[in-house]
Amino acid sequence: MQPIAASEPGIRVSLAELIDMRHRIREVQLFSTPARRSPLVGLHHSKLRGRGVDFDQVRVYQPGDDVRTIDWRVTARTQEPHTKLFHEERERPIFILVEQSQRLFFGSGLAFKSVLAAQVAALIGWAALSHNDRVGGLVFGDNEHHEIKPRRSKMSLLQLLNRLVRANQNLNSEIPAGRDTFGLALRRAREVLRPGSLAVVLCDERALNDSAEQQLTLLARHTDLLLLPLSDPLDHALPAAGLLQFSQRSALLELDTHNSELRETYHALGEARQARWQVLAQKLGVPLFPLTTLNDPIEQLRDHLQGQRPRKKQ
């Protein structure tokens, strides 16, 4: 087994970098704590129709408590409003599907999309482990995939991160495109995940085709989903930079970016991809957190979670 090369910041990741992501889990509230309830977990429980939470205790009602949790028997007996408290079921399997393919080996922002995927996967893994959940996942690329069974073990997470780093280090622009590995990864997740699991999907925004959409729909029937499609600003808009040349192996493509019709068509395709993800997430009733290479991943996740919080009544 050959040693993993040192990382090139923003282009490739190292195992040390992904291990260090554990220090950043305090910066974003991915999962609940005794003091705070994550809006993401709130969505998880509401979709499960009550599964995943256990009754904890009854205490005196406080302003801001949900009136639906009032314990009317205790309230009638004590003549003082009381509310029920619940805590989350522990050791919930969290399965992280993360893409490391040639189409992610690109970026014009802070990092390549492949690096962004690895960083977010590591962050979610460390957050889940600190929350006492079982963590595993599947790293899939153009021609291979590596699966780690969910366990409540630091070693299991390190195995997943190690596989992720090796796949990332092997990426290059000359890798031939393989078959529909995203659809195959989703099909495998359906085979191994039990009801009540949370599947976290980190993939290129362009990965959503008819087959993948069907697999996601089937997967959502018995597991919870968090969708995190990845994109780069250049996936959505071409700069007016004149003649641009793109090459892959022996193929060469030239685009005249001064052509306004070409840029408008290119932009429309990017908008259509975004809209397709939004329509799918709404149909399945699952959270959609699009990520871009333009901004820090922690800030993006924090913004998405803030957007998931229920608005206060005026």
Score class of each variant (00 low, 15 high):
D71C: 08
R73D: 11
R73Q: 14
T75H: 01
R77A: 12
T78R: 14
T78H: 10
E80P: 00
H82P: 06
T83K: 09
K84E: 02
P93S: 03
P93I: 01
I94D: 01
Q100M: 05
Q100S: 11
Q102H: 12
Q102D: 02
S108E: 08
K113T: 10
K113C: 11
A121D: 04
A122Y: 08
A122Q: 09
A127C: 09
A128S: 14
R134Q: 13
F140W: 11
G141I: 08
H145Q: 15
H145S: 15
R151V: 05
R151W: 10
M155V: 15
S156I: 03
L157I: 09
Q159D: 15
Q159F: 11
L161I: 10
L161Y: 06
N162W: 09
L164G: 01
Q169M: 09
N170P: 01
S173T: 14
G178I: 05
R179P: 03
D180I: 06
F182E: 03
F182H: 07
L186H: 03
R194N: 03
R194E: 09
P195V: 09
V201W: 02
R206V: 05
A207P: 00
D210I: 11
D210R: 15
S211A: 13
E213W: 06
E213N: 13
Q215R: 13
L216G: 04
L216M: 08
